[in-house]
């Protein structure tokens, strides 16, 4: 184990986060099993108390998880001096691949899963009959599983790594030649074109859905948003990073975000916008519940704004680098 102040701090927060979120799963399961409690006010009160416990714990857990993302990257960055041969985060990841890559990937997936749950909760609380109560309480369990998995990968990485030489500074896509990775690495144009195509499609579908009297198009919006999100990550890795880092073969989204703050912020906006578009479209039909539907439409409008602003800035930077610098 390599010890420094970032590693110790991260381990402390990991313990706290797990200690908060995992019991939330237990509380959620217990509340879901209890059901609505029928007419008995005491049972109902117990169920409501448990539900508030779940909401409170998950809310705090989400906040802690969000700030643990930059701390994770700071921690990885602090390990670079201790790893001979590593010059960037990708090199540090090679110390404990694939656990390290799994841990980092989950850093992005878990907040998105949280966002989904929080959106479902916000919608449910706006409806008198709370139709999604059982669903949201049961969904805490998969969220907790993700968290437990991430905690395991984090611990595996932080507790087991030792300073050893890694081959050189490489990114995921620079490593072995041939095979699927090579195919992914060299299809940058496809990912970029796919991203813009899916983005435009998702935006048009969203706008159509949000028009007064609209409401159709949930499935295309959800699918296209998800695809656009996937293509965005691949495009950032294979096209944007070599271009904006001025390093033709350097495909590394970590280096891109670490060295270009505006790109990191634009990417965050794009990811948040696309994911919230997906979430908004994935929610059940809320037309019978006017208050909830109003809120969901506000959320979708906010998502639309982020999904336009983020990619717009990315496009400006791409075009500027490509044609003017």
């Amino acid at each position: 184990m390599i010890v420094n102040e970032f590693v110790v701090s991260y381990l402390v927060l990991l313990g706290l986060s797990a200690g908060i979120c995992l019991p939330a799963a237990g509380a959620g399961w217990a509340a879901a099993r209890r059901g609505r409690g029928g007419p008995d006010p005491a049972q109902r009160e117990r169920r409501e108390k448990n539900t508030y416990l779940v909401i409170t714990l998950l809310g705090l857990g989400f906040a802690i998880r969000l700030v643990m993302i930059p701390l994770w990257f700071l921690t990885l960055h602090s390990l670079i001096p201790a790893v001979p041969g590593a010059m960037c985060l990708a090199g540090v990841h090679l110390l404990d691949s694939p656990f390290s890559f799994a841990a980092t990937t989950l850093k992005f997936i878990i907040p998105l899963a949280y966002l989904f749950w929080l959106t479902l909760n916000a919608v449910d609380r706006r409806i008198e009959t709370e139709p999604f109560l059982r669903a949201k309480l049961l969904w805490v369990a998969p969220l907790a599983l993700l968290l437990a998995g991430e905690s395991f990968f984090d611990l595996h990485f932080l507790l087991r790594i030792n300073p050893r030489i890694v081959s050189c500074c490489t990114s995921l896509f620079d490593l072995p030649r041939g095979g699927a990775l090579e195919a992914v690495r060299s299809a940058g144009t496809l990912w970029t074109a796919g991203f813009y195509a899916c983005l435009v499609g998702a935006l048009l579908a969203s706008v159509r859905r949000l028009r007064p009297g609209g409401g159709k198009g949930r499935l295309p919006t959800a699918l296209l948003s998800l695809l656009a999100l996937l293509f965005l990550i691949l495009a950032l890795q294979t096209v944007f990073s070599p271009l904006l880092l001025h390093a033709p073969y350097h495909q590394c989204v970590f280096c891109l975000w670490g060295n270009r703050l505006d790109i990191a912020l634009a990417s965050a906006a794009a990811i948040a916008g696309l994911w919230l578009s997906f979430v908004g479209a994935a929610l059940p039909d809320l037309r019978p519940y006017p208050e909830a539907e109003r809120w969901a439409r506000k959320l979708s409008r906010f998502a639309l704004l982020c999904a336009i602003a983020g990619p717009a800035w990315l496009s400006v930077r791409y075009l500027a680098e490509r044609f003017f610098f």
């Binding site: 701090s9 200690g19 508030y52 416990l53 409170t56 705090l60 802690i64 700030v67 701390l71």
Partner: peptide
């Protein structure tokens, strides 16, 4: 400063979240 903010707020929040829930309910 980021570390100090994190380590000053997160553990304290975690320690008081259950009492806050008990008070709120």
């Amino acid at each position: 400063v980021f570390l100090l903010l994190l380590l000053g707020l997160a553990p304290l929040s975690a320690a008081t979240v259950i009492p806050a829930w008990r008070t709120g309910t």
